[in-house]
């Protein structure tokens, strides 16, 4: 009865499983169970020895030289890799600088900076339909900033100012024709510039300047969502 009770535990013990104290007592007292245990223990030992014999190989005498060569080859490969990684990164940076410069000067913005180095002609001017947005009379100070002008345009304006002493007008891009028409009227004497209201120098813009609506750039939705709490609260600071 006891032998049947402990048979599996004793066999498992022969292969390395722990044996309870009761099982150990039975194993010590029972001769047949001890023989079973020893038979399985020998089998387990044979397995270990067979595995050991199967994998008991020694490295060849060239092993260490192979390690050294592998290290050198790996390092050389790493150097090459670094070079190949660095090249496209450098190319990408150069391309970004070039494209950024092109974009700056491409006139893709909704506003335009007109440097009046020469008087505008009205040869291509149709009848003006829009409102005159801004014009700088002859003796008026240069407009430093127009509402709605972005900082980038300000920078461009400053750079143009530094490069050219001519009069400078900041106008919305869609009102260039109206400006040209105004210049034409002044040139042919229809309009007396002296009768134009003086610019509001203190405010840094002409008194009757029709200020284009301030452009508010949309805030990316992702930014808003990130700062919003799930419960719709004010979000974290």
């Amino acid at each position: 009865m006891s032998c049947l009770k402990y048979a599996d535990a004793i066999i498992d013990h022969a292969y390395g499983a722990p044996l309870s104290s009761a099982g150990a007592e039975h194993l010590a007292a029972c001769e047949p169970c001890r023989r079973t245990f020893e038979r399985h223990a020998r089998h387990a030992h044979d397995i270990d020895e067979t595995v050991l014999g199967a994998i008991a190989i020694e490295p060849s005498i060239d092993f260490r030289r192979g390690v050294r060569e592998r290290i050198e080859r790996t390092d050389a490969g790493r150097s090459r890799t670094r070079w190949w990684v660095a090249l496209p990164v450098a190319a990408a940076i150069v391309m970004a600088v070039i494209l950024g410069g092109l974009w700056e000067h491409s006139g893709s913005s909704p506003r335009a900076v007109v440097v009046m180095s020469q008087p505008l002609t009205a040869t291509d001017v149709a009848k003006p339909s829009g409102t005159i947005a801004a014009v700088r009379p002859e003796n008026a100070p240069a407009v430093s900033r127009t509402a709605g002008t972005t900082r980038r345009h300000d920078r461009m304006s400053r750079s143009h100012r530094a490069a050219s002493p001519e009069a400078e007008v900041l106008v919305p891009g869609d009102q260039r024709r109206a400006i040209a028409r105004l210049v034409e009227l002044i040139q042919d004497g229809t309009l007396d510039p002296a009768k134009l209201p003086p610019p509001d120098v203190a405010a840094g813009k002409p008194a009757d300047l029709v200020v284009p609506a301030l452009t508010i750039e949309p805030i990316p939705i992702a930014t808003v969502e990130t700062n919003r709490r799930p419960d719709g609260g004010p979000g974290r600071r």
């Binding site: 190989i57 092993f63 592998r70 290290i71 790996t74």
Partner: peptide, 21 residues
């Protein structure tokens, strides 16, 4: 390595790679 690959040359190659790493 030999316990997995059972080819001496392959086992040495893998072991050398491990040392290089």
């Amino acid at each position: 390595a030999y316990g997995v690959l059972r080819q001496r040359l392959d086992a040495e190659d893998v072991a050398q790679e491990a040392f290089a790493k």
